[in-house]
Computed example of a mutant assay.
Amino acid sequence: MSIETEINTIAIIGGTGKEGKGLAYRWVKAGYKVIIGSRNMEKAQIAVAELAEKLTDQEQKLLSGDENGAAVRQSQLAVLTVPYQFHKDILSSLKNDLAGKYLIDVTVPLVPPKVSTVQVPEEGSAALQAQMLLGEETTVISAFQNISFGLLLSDEKIECDVLVCGKNVEAREIGQKMVRATGLTAWDAGPLENSIVAEGFTSVLIRINKQAGTKNAGIQITNVPRD
């Protein structure tokens, strides 16, 4: 796949969770076909039904649910939105299905109960862990770690930026394109090694939310030209 390849269908692995449903909602509203994936078909269908209540009849036709592997096989782009504790197992089970595809990894290495303390995996970040597990046949992109699902499920303009990391410019351009499709501002944050910053910032935002009594703290890049 290259940046010229048109992305029509997005598979959201573990899409029954809050973050997955928020991203699915935004991409469907932007005109993409989205398949919510789950290890349990019934859970996938329930998530689809819940989101359908917020969509028009025409938009509902763009949304479906399926088992994770089947969802990935039908897509040009996969997105991983699972708790860190399931990260390795799910990626290992889908390695063959993900070969030749781009994968946006939204996972943050949160380790309860210390979710407001930054945790660094042995590989350096969850995204780097994903790349090492999947090998060179899959191109991993890191994005969306610092955005609240509550904001994604709203129809309001979101004052939050997204840092996009990937091993090359082409991967980062694809990641930025998908970020912009959700209505958010995307920034090229460099190689996949830099994903440690975005992932770690989530724990900082959790701490800030606790201190401020809020839920939707995010980040913005300032003092540079904005589109």
Rank of each mutant, 00 (worst) to 15 (best):
P121G: 03
Q60Y: 02
I158W: 09
A78R: 09
G213Y: 13
Q58R: 02
V79C: 12
E136H: 11
V34P: 02
T182V: 04
T222M: 11
T185P: 00
A99W: 06
R180D: 05
N223Y: 02
L128N: 06
S2R: 12
G31N: 06
I36H: 04
A52D: 00
S64V: 02
G14Q: 05
K54T: 11
M1L: 09
V115W: 03
G124L: 10
S64G: 10
T202R: 03
E19W: 01
V164L: 07
A198M: 07
A181I: 04
Q129D: 13
A49V: 03
A70Y: 03
D57I: 01
V224C: 09
T107D: 06
Y102T: 03
Q76C: 01
L77Y: 08
E136P: 08
V204L: 15
L62K: 13
A143C: 10
V197T: 12
N216E: 15
K21C: 11
G37E: 03
T139E: 07
E193W: 08
D89Y: 06
L55F: 15
V79A: 06
M1I: 10
V82G: 10
A171D: 05
L192Y: 07
K167P: 02
G218S: 14
I208K: 10
I7S: 08
G190V: 00
D66L: 04
E50Q: 15
R73G: 07
V204A: 09
I12P: 10
E42A: 13
L55M: 15
A189F: 12
G65K: 09
A198W: 00
L80C: 05
S203E: 04
L23I: 12
I3P: 05
G69W: 01
D66K: 07
I174E: 05
R180E: 15
E156A: 14
P109N: 12
Q76K: 03
L128I: 13
I10L: 13
G17W: 09
G100P: 05
N223I: 07
L77R: 05
K18I: 07
S116R: 11
V162E: 08
I46Q: 15
K88Y: 10
K54Q: 13
G17H: 03
K18W: 05
N68C: 09
L80F: 03
L23G: 01
V108P: 02
W27N: 02
I104C: 07
N40C: 04
K157N: 13
K43A: 15
L55Y: 12
S2C: 00
L192H: 08
A171V: 11
D57W: 03
N216Q: 14
L91S: 10
G69R: 10
T139R: 14
V179A: 01
L153M: 10
G37T: 10
A71H: 06
G14N: 11
N194F: 13
D227S: 12
M178L: 15
G124N: 06
K29D: 00
A212C: 11
D188Y: 08
W187I: 01
K177I: 06
I174H: 08
Q74A: 12
F201A: 03
K95A: 15
L94S: 04
V204Y: 06
E42T: 01
T117P: 01
Q76V: 00
A181Y: 02
P112T: 04
